[in-house]
Amino acid sequence: MKQLRLSGSGGQGVITAAIIFAEAAMNEGKQVVQSQSYGPEARGGASKAEIVISDEKIYHPKIVSPDIVLSLTQKAADKYYKGLDQNNGLLVVDEDLVPNIPDFPNVVKVPVTRIAAEKVGKMLFTNIVALGVLVKLSQLISLESAKKAVEKRVPPHTIEQNMKALQLGYDAV
């Protein structure tokens, strides 16, 4: 069983990224559950999405101990790195938005928001850049599956830019 947590603030797209990741894993024959928690605000406020992937049927729908935590805000990083296993856990942060890296042995820093803004053209693609990063680091799904899942879940006129974002994220780590 593998457990991933994507965290940030409302509007950064972490829930969409988690749905796409979960769908890709399902297409590779895995059992998945994907859940989220967020505040009542439409934008801003804490937002968190979780994915559990297993070969067997999954009952308890939430993460018990995450293998990977992605944090796109300082607040999310400070809150969620604590649940990670000191030896095997992996913390992935946006290096511009999380200036104070938590004291944790295994941290990967990626300028995901900057890549989205400067290389894809819009900050809106931050979540798909982050998805590319997670695909590479987690080794749970292939880039091909991720591409197919992205294509299915994003508006048709944005597919090209989203593919670019995914590849840039994948190549950034």
Binding site: M26, S35, P61
Partner: peptide, 9 residues
Amino acid sequence: EIVGHLREN
């Protein structure tokens, strides 16, 4: 909310 917002296969 658990089942309403849960996605699964």
